[in-house]
Structure formats: C-alpha cells, structure tokens
Simulated assay, not measured.
Amino acid sequence: MVDLSFWLLFFSAALALNLSPGPDLLYVLSRTLSGGRRLGLVSTLGVCTGALVHVAAAALGLSAILATSAAAFAVVKYVGAAYLIYIGFQALRSTGGVRIEARAPVSAWRAFRQGVLVDVLNPKAAIFFMAFLPQFVRPDHGAVALQLFILGVLVVLVAIIVECTLVLLATRASQALRSHQAVGRWLDRVMGSLLVGLGVRLGLSERL
C-alpha cells in the first residue's frame, strides 16, 4: 500500500531543498542568461548528472568519508571553490550581449561538463545526500543501499523539473534584455560576481 503521507513529506522536502539557492542553481541560471535556453537545459543535465554521482556514492557509503575525514573534505572543498571562482571570473570577463561575435560561444558540451564538475566538486552536496536520504529509509522496504539510490534518483528528478522550469522562465525574462549589449554585460557581471562569491563562501565554509 502506498504511504501518501510519507511521499508527500519526501517530495515536499526535495522540492524545498531544490529551490534553495546554491552553486548548482546559480550555475544553471548564469548559463541560461548568458547563452539562452539550450545552454541552460544542457547545464541542468550536467549538474543533475553530477548529483547522480553523489547519489551513487551515498548508496555505496563513500560519502561517509567526506563526513568523517577533515582532509578529504578540505581537498574537495578547495578544488570546488577554485573552480567556482574560475567560472565566475570567466563571466566577469565576458563582453556581454549577443551582438559581439568575435568571442566564441560556450559549447553545449562545455556547459554540460562544467555543470557536472560544479556539482561533483561540492562536498556539501555529497554530505547532503548522506544526511538527507537516510531519514527516509524504511527497514521493512528492502536493502538500504537500493532504497538510498532510488530516493536519491527521485531527488534528482525533482531537481530536473525545478531547474528546467526556472530555465524556461529565465529565458523568457532575459530574451529582451540580452539584445542590449550593455544589459547583457551587466547580467554577466552580476552572475560572475555571485559565482565568485559562492566560491569564496565554499572555501571558507566549515564541515556540516
């Protein structure tokens, strides 16, 4: 029998968590504003693929290493912070606006690859899955590892729905703005600054 209260609580929590601002969501929105709907959707696929890596790690117990090892957490944290700052500085250097054609546009493959790395190199994402998913594991519903994996995949599916919806909304809101070079440059500066800020914040953060 389906436990409606259980699933209502689970999906409500997953929705709230996926709507919370973080490196993944900000990266997706920055790619959408700078490159349009296609890059936004590809970036969503990238960060969600990275999230699946954390889901698999949580199911196998590997995320526990980050939760218990200060050295492992520090290494992943600083690499992830440096990568976010690097992407942010790239946005800050952007010429902005769709009328400038001398600068090669970001390819879909590059946006996807960066999306994967943004998520994989975020140690708090790994610890999040390790801390969040076990709360919904039920002893009478089979192997714990399988339950963790299924629940994790469901969280990622919610993320895909949320982020794709936001990409479509951001695309519609920014289409008119991106046709003006000055406004496009301003959007790049804002998103770049936010990414750099997130990188600095991640670098200074403590373990959960």
Rank of each mutant, 00 (worst) to 15 (best):
A16F: 14
R207A: 04
Y78F: 14
F132I: 00
L17W: 10
T44D: 04
L194D: 00
T165N: 01
H54R: 06
L194W: 03
G96Q: 05
A59W: 07
G152S: 12
H141V: 09
H54C: 11
P134C: 14
L133Y: 03
L4R: 07
R138G: 06
L9M: 13
G203S: 03
G152Y: 08
A67I: 09
A131L: 09
Q181V: 10
F129L: 13
D24W: 08
S30T: 07
V156Y: 11
S94C: 09
V196L: 01
W109D: 11
Q114T: 14
L62A: 15
G36D: 03
V28Q: 02
A74C: 01
R31S: 05
S34F: 00
F132Y: 04
Y27W: 05
R138Y: 08
A57V: 06
E101N: 12
A74M: 06
V144T: 15
G184M: 13
F73C: 07
R189D: 02
A70V: 07
L8Q: 12
G96T: 08
D188V: 03
L8S: 15
Q135L: 11
S34L: 02
A81W: 00
L195Y: 00
V75K: 00
F89D: 01
G50Y: 12
V120I: 15
A170N: 08
R185M: 07
A145Y: 15
A74K: 04
V79N: 03
I160L: 14
S179F: 09
F6I: 06
G203E: 04
Y83N: 05
L146P: 03
L187C: 09
A131D: 02
E163A: 05
V167E: 04
Q135A: 14
V156A: 09
L52N: 13
S12I: 09
A13P: 06
Y83Q: 08
L29W: 02
W186Q: 06
V79H: 04
A159Q: 12
V190F: 08
A59H: 06
I87D: 00
G50P: 13
L92I: 01
Q147T: 07
I160Q: 10
L8A: 14
L52E: 14
V183C: 06
L208H: 11
N18Y: 08
M1Q: 07
L8P: 03
I127E: 01
R138Q: 14
G197P: 06
T32D: 03
R38L: 11
V98H: 10
G61F: 09
A16K: 12
Y86M: 04
V42W: 09
A108H: 11
F136L: 12
F132T: 03
V106W: 06
L92A: 00
G203L: 03
N18E: 10
V55C: 08
L52Q: 15
F89S: 05
L45Q: 07
T68A: 13
